[in-house]
Design a protein around this nucleic acid. Structure first.
Length: 532
RNA sequence: GGGAGUGUAGCUCAGUGGUUAGAGCAGGCCACUCAUAAUGGCUCGGUCGCGGGUUCGAAUCCUGCCACUCCCA
């Protein structure tokens, strides 16, 4: 049964270069998007850039260009990076695009109309660099200086438009409690949010003054600029608010990092609840799931520029160059911080995962099966015939069924590591099957060739099933494998964000005897540590 | 200052009251040879952060402390 699937990443702050954190979240989104396309779901995968921060104005000035030019330049860096890394997003939203700005103004006007926005006054210690107010006691603790750049905090008072967040506490608690309409995971994150909502919600300012011309104006009040966070959150909705795309809403998964939990788990759904009250906005439901991942550390330590352990674009490119794109994707998505604890990006760990899973297990298994097919059957897939005497009955297809079942269950629960492991387990089972049946021994005995054929056919089938399951993680290499094994039509169907028919493709016995099996170069050459 | 979480084999983690605590990887040994020195089997390895307590019995519950992470003020 196919359905729609809408997954988003946060839109990335455009004032810096892409780094491992951006690539990670996007890679997770990409694996999910590919999985759903493979299943045949009508999938929409969105990423983009958040561009209206006032820091963009400063950086632009420092670099002698206009803010828009600066934003263009940096947004392009993100776009190029994601393209180069094979991300399959369906759209890339930039908050400076008219299609977004118009919608933001539109929604803001509706919020004004709905009665939950009012003009109030806010005064407090302001960190100009971070564009945020610092609570009194915290400001004192910091010595009235920015904890980030050490610049003095300034006393700032401004008239702002406020959103009546306070009115939504009960609704949010109720929604989070049932977890059916709107859920936050992992549960630990949900608990944090619930605890904090219980402490009481304050209304929040949703506009700023003095932002100059950068940003989106409050409709009908040019003095005020819509707070960049509000502007940014709206991207998830604005992008799909077109007649053709509305049916993707609500988002099925918003992927976020733990540092932006509050805005996504409280302010964003409350805004949607407010908008939803207006006639014509009934379609503006809450996102189904907010999935919060943790962060990458590097070589056991928090990443920092000064420590020199920052996994930046150059590092990422280095890994791609040495190990290949799929290896990076695989490592990130199966060893990443999807849970509540941070994950360590360590070179030794990367090499270990690469060699163990990709070279020794997947690559080698394909290699031995294709090699025997070449040696004993002239490179043509043999017909399955009698079971070998030493055989292990009909286990192979049941093993595949179990792997598929575990894989789906894991994918539905966003447990990417478990999903990949289910597929790898099937490959390992092929190794075990070869060990148990010893086709290379049978081949030396008179009249046993048909039994060898059965074994190799079963191996090829199991590998075909595993390859389908692994495609979301390893699209490049799996497609290469398909091209060598007469399964190129899978790659053709899935090209350019096309849909698959996973259920049908997974049925046992689709490898056609006689198909040419090309061994080719190793898919994942074993890595010799000396090279790095 | 308040709150939450984590702490189990070298590494990553599973295990929420009940026999001698598990998996994968790494290490060691053996076997095999179709394969990318790969694969298969066996094995080594843990005072379950530390101290109290509850219980016939605790990694598992309670409590104090320590370390790390996060949230709030």
């Amino acid at each position: 049964m196919s359905s729609k699937f809408y997954v988003t990443t946060p839109i990335y702050y455009v004032n810096g270069e892409p780094h491992i954190g951006h690539v990670y979240t996007t890679a997770v989104g990409d694996v999910l998007a590919r999985y759903h396309r493979l299943k045949g779901d009508d999938t929409f995968f969105l990423t983009g850039t958040d561009e209206h921060a006032t820091k963009v104005v400063d950086s632009a000035a420092e670099n002698g260009v206009s803010p828009q030019e600066w934003a263009d330049r940096n947004a392009k860096a993100f776009q190029d990076t994601f393209t180069r890394l094979g991300m399959s997003h369906d759209d890339f939203i930039r908050t400076t695009q008219d299609r977004h700005k118009d919608k933001v103004q539109d929604y803001f006007k509706q919020l004004l109309d709905c009665g939950d926005v009012y003009l109030g006054e806010y005064e407090g210690w302001y960190d100009a660099g971070q564009e945020e107010y610092i609570p009194e006691n915290k400001a004192k603790e910091f010595g009235y200086k920015s904890p980030v750049n050490d610049q003095p905090l300034v006393r700032k008072a401004e008239k702002n438009y406020f959103f009546k967040l306070s009115a939504y506490g009960d609704s949010l608690l109720q929604l989070l409690g049932s977890g059916e309409v709107f859920d936050v995971r992992p549960t630990a994150r949900k608990n944090e949010v619930v605890a904090r909502i219980r402490e009481g919600l304050n209304d929040v300012p949703i506009s700023r003054t003095g932002s100059g011309d950068w940003g989106i104006k409050v409709p009908g009040d040019d003095e005020h600029t819509i707070y960049v966070w509000i502007d940014a959150l709206i991207n998830y909705l604005s992008t799909v608010d077109t007649p053709e795309r509305r049916y993707y809403w609500p988002a099925d998964v918003h992927l976020i990092g733990k540092e932006i939990l509050w805005f996504h788990a409280v302010i964003w759904p409350a805004m949607l609840l407010a908008l939803n009250k207006l006639p014509g906005n009934e379609w503006m439901k809450l996102p189904r799931l907010l999935y919060t991942h943790s962060q990458w550390i590097s070589e056991g330590k928090k990443m920092s520029k000064t420590l020199g352990n920052f996994i930046d674009l150059a590092q990422i490119d280095h890994y791609v160059e040495v190990f290949g794109l799929d290896a990076l994707r695989y490592f990130l998505t199966t060893n990443g911080p999807l849970g509540t604890t941070d994950s360590d990006f360590a070179e030794a760990k990367f090499i270990e995962v690469y060699n163990t899973d990709l070279a020794n297990t997947l690559g080698n298994c394909f290699s031995r099966v294709s090699n025997m097919t070449g040696r004993y059957f002239d490179g043509r897939l043999p017909k399955p015939g009698p079971e070998p005497q030493t055989g292990i009955d009909q286990e192979h297809d049941r093993t595949a069924e179990h792997a598929v079942r575990d894989y789906h269950r894991a994918m539905q629960g966003l447990e990417l590591s478990k999903a990949a492991d289910a597929a790898m387990g099937l490959v390992r089972a092929v190794d075990g099957y070869i060990e148990a049946t010893q086709p290379f021994q049978l081949a030396k005995q008179d009249g046993k060739l048909p039994e060898v054929g059965t074994v190799l056919y079963n191996c090829a089938e199991a590998l075909r099933v595993a390859s389908l399951l692994l495609w979301p993680f390893l699209p490049e290499k799996i497609e290469a494998l398909w091209r060598r094994t007469g399964c190129g039509h899978y790659a053709d169907a899935l090209a350019d964000r096309g849909k698959g028919e996973l259920d049908q493709w997974l049925t046992w016995g689709q490898c056609k005897p006689g198909t040419e099996i090309m061994k080719g170069d190793p898919l994942f050459p074993r890595f010799q540590p000396a090279k790095v």
